[in-house]
């Protein structure tokens, strides 16, 4: 027997994108908040049905971009005008037009890296194990089945009531999964 502390959540299986979309709406309408979908392909608008708010990734990316701009400007100013001033073809040691391409490149580089690795971090990736893998038919998530999970951290979560609820909205193979 498992203790309550080990329960990760309840997972239900659905047959079609339309079914999981409706189920996601019904689940969030019922007041659940720790709800997620696991599907073979992206389903348009599912994040609205799941009531997942806008991603915070954009703020990380703008931070990366501003860091890139600042780093590039400081680097070129310090190298060209402070540490080793050198006059090239009559330009000032620090001449702003010459710094723009590198500033732009470093902004793009750090923004892009932040976007990719920020996405990994927010998704807690890489991760080789996930409790949902314990579901008996989860292998079909890359083929033709759509899974909806309600996690135990949800304040409204109750192992039997939540499972019954997912069954009542058409979920099949509703299983309680341990971490």
């Amino acid at each position: 027997m498992s203790s309550e502390a080990n329960v990760w959540g309840v997972v239900a299986e659905f047959d079609s994108p339309a079914a999981i979309y409706a189920a996601a709406e019904a689940t969030t309408d019922a007041g659940y908040v720790q709800v997620d979908s696991h599907t073979p392909f992206p389903i348009h608008g599912i994040e609205k049905a799941l009531r997942h708010g806008p991603s915070h990734l954009g703020w990380f990316v703008i931070g990366g971009g501003i860091t890139g701009i600042t780093a590039a400007q400081l680097m070129m100013w310090w190298m060209n005008a402070v540490d080793y001033p050198i006059y090239v073809s009559g330009k000032l040691p620090y001449a702003w037009p010459a710094t723009i391409p590198i500033t732009f490149e470093l902004m793009v580089l750090l923004s892009a890296l932040t976007a990719v690795f920020g996405m990994f971090a927010l998704n807690k990736l890489p991760r080789h194990y996930h409790p949902i893998f314990k579901h008996s038919s989860i292998h079909r998530v890359t083929d033709d089945r759509f899974f909806l999970s309600v996690e135990a951290t949800d304040p409204k979560f109750d192992r039997s009531a939540t499972a019954k609820f997912l069954e009542s909205i058409g979920g099949k193979n509703v299983e309680l999964l341990e971490d």
Binding site: S89, P97, I100, P101
Partner: peptide, 12 residues
């Protein structure tokens, strides 16, 4: 616009 400006500024 900047590409046009910078190349002209640089080549002088």
């Amino acid at each position: 616009s900047f590409s046009q400006f910078m190349l002209i500024w640089y080549a002088n």
